[in-house]
């Protein structure tokens, strides 16, 4: 089965002794060649994180983000689907009725989130909430710099979820005009 060959040793103890000595030296030299090559000729892979940052993938799932419409209001309709599907029970949405003026000028009652809280300390970033959102307003973005010494600060209110940067994959595809391939349900 194409295995690594096993060690073959002579039955003569004297020859076997020198075989052991010789194979020890040779195989150690082979190993030293590889490690020496790595030490002198191959480039380092460490990224000195705070000074140098990696380019994260567009699909990286970190802090949530709620999209807003032109007037700056969240387009969330407070349907509560994300709250229901969340395996960690970390989303809390309550509903309120607000009156908005449509572009046609008529006034309309719509559902808007009254309270929208995500407890990031409990979240496991599974993306289920973003996938069930019927109006595509909840997304997971690449913003991962929210670690904190106080677990209560990880409870993010709606204002904290409206930050514009960085974009999620969904929005990046929207702005690029590229075909909408990810993040859809």
């Amino acid at each position: 089965m194409g295995h690594v060959p096993r060690t073959q040793v002579s039955s003569n103890p004297i020859i076997a002794f020198f075989q052991y000595v010789w194979s020890s030296l040779i195989t150690a030299a082979k190993g030293l060649r590889v490690t020496g090559y790595n030490a002198w000729l191959r480039e380092r892979v460490t990224v000195a994180y705070p000074k140098q940052e990696l380019d994260l993938s567009l699909r990286t799932r970190a802090k949530h983000r709620v999209l807003v419409d032109d007037t700056g209001d969240p387009i969330c309709i407070a349907c509560g689907q994300c709250q229901r599907i969340c395996p960690d029970h970390c989303i809390l949405v309550t509903r309120k009725k607000v009156t908005v003026t449509t572009p046609e000028g008529e006034e309309k009652q719509v559902n808007r989130p009254d309270e929208f809280v995500i407890d990031l300390a409990r979240c496991m970033y599974c993306n289920l909430c973003a996938e069930v959102c019927p109006v595509d307003c909840l997304h997971l973005t690449r913003d991962f710099k929210y670690s904190s010494g106080d677990v209560h600060t990880m409870r993010i209110e709606l204002e904290g979820l409206l930050r514009p940067e960085p974009l999620s994959e969904y929005e990046a595809n929207q702005t690029d005009g590229a075909d909408d391939e990810g993040g859809e349900e």
């Binding site: 690594v4 060690t7 052991y20 194979s23 020890s24 195989t27 150690a28 082979k30 190993g31 060649r33 590889v34 490690t35």
Partner: peptide, 12 residues
Amino acid sequence: YDDVFTNNRVAR
């Protein structure tokens, strides 16, 4: 990997 570890006499 074979050179550094698998075939090494000490590892064997």
